[in-house]
Amino acid sequence: MALLETFEITKAYGDHQVLRGIDFAIEPGQVVAVIGPSGGGKSTFLRCLNQMERPTTGRVVFAGEELSATESNLDRLRARMGMVFQQFNLFPHMTALRNVVLPQMNVLGRTREEAERRGRALLEQVGMLAKADSYPNRLSGGQKQRVAIARALAMDPEVMLFDEPTSALDPEVVHDVLDVMTDLAKDGMTMVVVTHEMGFARKVADRVVFIDGGKIAADLPPEEFFSDGNDNERIRTFLAKVL
């Protein structure tokens, strides 16, 4: 059974129709790369998955439960879905460790000790333990993003949503972050990754979803998607631009 599923979701900002009916499903343990031209609606789609953005119509079902409009139910389900942002969005007034600890204590009700033990383990996993007591302003972009990933993982999520996690990074640190994500995927994490990193999509993803004009224009395994035999004209022009 699909872990996360959408049914005909649409999203409009006023007259501007951004999503035009998206049916999507991801199985536990799958990694889906979402790619497509700028403005095509990738971020909007991803943000609909945990209701950061409310779809105009359509339903989102997570682990058999409908993500309803009632806030408390929503908070409960969101806690089981991690999200990583292009701009990191670390809490600047807290140390790296405290960033990872706060949501655990506040949402999961863990004690400080428990939360710190888990937090340190995760910082170690993303290679950031040495910086546990640093404030975000002392960290590079790549370091910030790894702390942000640890913060999301600390909630023990069942699925991780990434929105262009490496787009704001200097090229030389992109790999630090991609390595962490690759390890996660290998450990069996369910992941939806909006990305421009074609190498990552090709090597790590189980499926590549191409979103264009608010619709899923293709949903293929990477070897098919990137194969020379793919005759979808839009995909070919897109790939010609980014590769």
């Binding site: 945990n50 950061m52 806030e71 408390s72 908070d75 409960r76 389900l77 969101r78 806690a79 089981r80 879905m81 991690g82 999200m83 942002f85 701009q87 969005n89 670390l90 809490f91 600047p92 007034h93 706060l102 949501p103 506040n106 949402v107 942000a148 913060r151 999301a152 909630m155």
Partner: peptide, 25 residues
């Protein structure tokens, strides 16, 4: 806005996000 979004994406309530994340800043 990203600050509230980050807090809420972890499952924190609006009030908790305000109290722990937004208001201290």
């Amino acid at each position: 806005r990203g600050q509230i979004e980050a807090a809420r994406s972890c499952g924190m309530s609006h009030a908790a996000a305000m109290r722990h994340v937004v208001i201290p800043q």
